[in-house]
């Protein structure tokens, strides 16, 4: 099973089992890390905002227009900002590293 590496807001690293086909948001939420994901993963809020490690950016499918629009409601958006509900776990993403964006 792929592993996803998640830095929480205190900077602590969590290595999480990530079943293929789950979204990164689901992996984070099911591990009990603090991610709000208010809309449940339908790209209708911006509360699963993460920063993707720059070395991984090029290996992800680029965001859809929907996701880019929703990121407008997030704060401290950076070039490596993504909504984690929109990143699907594949075997190729083994080792993907993300950081939880600040809560607000």
């Amino acid at each position: 099973m792929p592993t996803i590496r998640v830095y929480d807001r205190e900077g602590k690293l969590h290595e999480l089992d990530a079943p293929v086909g789950w979204s990164v948001m689901e992996v984070i939420r099911e591990a009990g890390l603090p991610i709000e994901a208010a809309c449940g993963g339908c790209c209708a809020c911006a509360t699963c905002h993460v920063y993707v490690d720059p070395s991984w950016l090029g290996r992800l499918e680029p965001p859809h227009a929907d996701e880019t629009l929703m990121l407008d409601e997030a704060f401290q958006v950076q070039d490596n900002s993504r909504l984690s509900c929109q990143i699907k776990v594949t075997p190729e993403l083994d080792g993907l590293t993300v950081t939880l964006a600040p809560e607000f």
Binding site: A38, E73, F75, Q76, P102, E103, F104
Partner: peptide
Amino acid sequence: GAGSFVPRRLP
């Protein structure tokens, strides 16, 4: 539901 909708504050 998940509570009241309130405006997001500037963080």
